[in-house]
């Protein structure tokens, strides 16, 4: 996908050039059907997503860093097996919201959270909730790839090992499954014992995705997963997101509006800690209801 493509060129009726012309050259042939439902780069949201039950519910969420309020009364739902992207200018609170979903904000002192966040039936911020168990349900991929200084195998097996899994067969199976899901298996299957730090940036990020998948989470939280990657590696991650949503619910924070448009079913636009607008991605990008959203996605500020 050419990175410089301006948002204003988006057209709800895809009369844009053939998909092949827009797709970057692939390092190796990939299954064609992966890209097929996305002519023109705009995802044709699967109709089932619209009827899927909500998995994550956020109600009246306020978050304070000390005295400063970072999130103001957020209400948001994420449906099962859908991709929700969170967009907005820097410092608008989208990463903070993402980190509320697996309570990573707990690690920073002086943070206060009000409101309700639920996953399925469970309230994340109910007293006595087991944060450790919770985090196993919410896999997370970070902005900068952060593999451990361990072998590729150990990186992926880490989540299971800390759960006390010692059975070699289970570990082998999980490593292979996760690496296949993250599309890295063919590239690394002969060097699982090599250091994870020896991989390229894009491979490292896919390794981190595999690591998150290995513990079979329900939700995958991605915090600008492609911001440090080149266009080619970015497109591979995007394809991956597209495949992964069959099995997982994905929440992705991105600075790149094209990316949000390409990969997500729903988009939420944040500004100054407030949720300005949310809806189906096609709707939000082509026909925003709020003026500020339109200004932002058309590049007038941000």
């Amino acid at each position: 996908m050419p990175a410089g493509e301006a948002m204003t060129e988006f057209d709800p009726n895809p009369t844009v050039p053939e998909p092949e012309a827009l797709m970057p050259v692939q390092a190796e042939p990939r299954p064609a059907q992966t890209m097929a439902p996305r002519p023109g780069g705009i995802p044709l949201t699967d109709a089932t997503v619209l009827t899927a039950p909500p998995l994550i519910g956020i109600q009246d969420l306020n978050l304070f860093y000390g005295e400063k309020q970072a999130l103001h009364g957020i209400n948001l739902e994420v449906r099962e097996h859908s991709v929700m992207s969170l967009i907005g200018p820097s410092g608008c609170g989208k990463s903070t919201l993402l980190r509320c979903l697996n309570r990573m904000n707990d690690l920073i002192g002086n943070v206060r959270v009000e409101g309700r966040v639920t996953i399925g039936e469970d309230d994340l911020y109910a007293p006595g909730v087991d944060v450790i168990t919770l985090r196993k349900r919410m896999g997370m991929v970070f902005q900068k790839s952060n593999p451990f200084p361990k072998s590729i195998y150990e990186n992926v097996a880490y989540g299971l090992r800390i759960q006390g899994v010692k059975d070699k067969n289970i570990l082998d199976e999980a490593v292979e499954r996760s690496l296949i899901s993250s599309g890295l298996w063919d590239e690394v299957k002969d060097r699982l014992k090599d250091s994870g730090l020896g991989l390229s940036g894009g491979q490292q990020q896919r390794l981190c995705i595999a690591r998150a998948l290995a513990v079979r989470p329900e939700v995958l939280l991605m915090d600008e997963p492609c911001s440090a990657l080149d266009p080619l590696a970015t497109s591979r991650i995007e394809e991956l997101i597209f495949e992964l949503k069959r099995d997982f619910t994905i929440v992705i924070v991105t600075h790149n509006m094209q990316q949000a448009a390409r990969v997500s079913d729903f988009t939420a636009f944040f500004w100054m800690g407030k949720l300005i607008e949310t809806g189906l991605t096609e709707m939000l990008f082509t026909n925003p209801r709020v003026r500020m959203t339109e200004d932002y996605i058309s590049g007038r500020f941000g």
Binding site: M104, G139, I162
Partner: peptide
């Protein structure tokens, strides 16, 4: 963070 996010104590 990567380790904690995977559910490590």
């Amino acid at each position: 963070e990567a380790s904690l996010a995977l559910g490590a104590t």
